[in-house]
Structure formats: C-alpha cells, structure tokens
C-alpha cells in the first residue's frame, strides 16, 4: 500500500468526524490490512477494495465508533458530573422551597402583627373612654414590646429568605445549569459531526 493510499483512508476517516488520533491509526491499519488482502487475493484495484472494506468493516455511521469509545472511556467522569448536577439541583430546589415556606410564614406573622395593632388601638380607645390612665400606659408598653418583637422576627425571616433564594440561585447556576448546557452542547456537536 502506498503513502497516498494511506492518506486517502485517513482523509476519509477525518471526513466522517473522527478526531481521536489513536483510534484513527487503528482503523487506518484495519482498513488497510483488509484492502491489501482484497488487492492480493482478488486482484482488485484500491478504490474497489476500499469501498468493499468500508462496507464490510465500518458501521453505517462510522463516527459511532468514536462515540462508543468516549462512552466507554469516560463513564466514571460522567457519572460524577451527573451526581454533582443532580445533588446541586435538588439542594437548589430545597432552598427555594424553604424560602417560600419562610416567606409565607413571615407574611402570616405580618398579618398577625396588624391584628395585634388594631386590638391595641381599640383597647387604647376603650381606656380613653373609661379614663383609665394606668391601664392605658400598660397597654401601650405591651403593644410597643409586641411590635418590636414582631418587627425583629420579620427582619430576621426576610434575611433568611433572601439568603435561601441566593443559595438556590447559586447552586442552580453553578451545578445544574452548566451540566444541562454542556449536555446540549455535546449533543449538538455530535449531531453536527454526524451530518
């Protein structure tokens, strides 16, 4: 087999999307050995022998070989990436749910606080009518304390909700999103190569 013949086989493999040089060397030798056998035993020319070797040895989509090789040689890596992506996605969803739960509890707290204020106001008005100064002052102090506690709880809860939302977005964008985008990118690359 001449140098141009070997280059012709290599160019064919390249045109089919092969990029793994080690695999290309193996397939070039495999095809070349089969072609040599046909040329020697059946006295066929290179072109005819090459066509026959292609049909006999290579699958309908030759690039499938490199794809299979990638799947076989990178499973552990892929499994680890998948695990990280799914755990990240799960934690992100959990943070978001906790944020929603805490947010709704805070909203509930706020409604309670409004009701307490209304109650305190009506008690205050009643004390004014009855002209009970001691009761009025005690009610006012109790109301102020309650309002202060309630405001502190709302502020703390809102800070926690904010932190949980940030954590959810960060986890989602660091782990799950890159995995989804990379997967789609790989699929589109494979589709392009198989065209």
């Amino acid at each position: 087999m001449t140098g141009p013949h070997v280059n012709y086989i290599k160019a064919y493999l390249k045109s089919k999307g092969f990029t793994d040089l080690e695999l290309m060397d193996d397939l070039t030798d495999h095809l070349a050995t089969e072609i040599e056998f046909s040329m020697d035993s059946e006295k066929l020319d290179f072109e005819t022998s090459f066509e026959r070797a292609k049909q006999k040895l290579l699958p309908d989509s030759p690039y499938q070989l490199e794809r299979d090789l990638k799947i076989l040689t990178t499973p552990k890596h892929n499994i680890m990436i998948k695990k990280i992506a799914y755990i990240g996605g799960y934690l992100s969803a959990m943070c978001l749910m906790l944020a929603l739960l805490l947010g709704s509890l805070t909203y509930h707290e706020k409604i309670n606080s409004n009701l307490s204020r209304e109650l305190a106001q009506s008690q205050n008005e009643l004390s004014m009518i009855l002209e009970d100064e001691v009761d009025r002052t005690a009610n006012y102090i109790s109301y102020m304390k309650e309002m202060e506690m309630s405001q502190i709880a709302v502020i703390q809860n809102l800070a926690a909700v904010q932190a949980l939302i940030v954590a959810a977005i960060a986890l989602f964008s660091i782990t799950y999103l890159p995995y989804r985008f990379y997967n789609s990118y790989q699929r589109s690359q494979l589709e392009l190569n198989s065209l």
């Binding site: 060397d25 193996d26 397939l27 070039t28 030798d29």
Partner: peptide, 28 residues
Amino acid sequence: EGSLYPSLHALTKEGYLQTESVNVGNRI
C-alpha cells in the same frame, strides 16, 4: 470493529493493556 477498538482502548486506559506502535507499509 465498532466493538473491538472501543474495548481495546478502554482496557488500555484502565491499565490492563499496553501498545507498541510499529511502522508497516506507510502506516502505524
């Protein structure tokens, strides 16, 4: 061939096989 070479390469990558390249008729 679609099964053989992926398996050979996987076994090589896992450290079970080694390769020796020889030039034969203008190819490796």
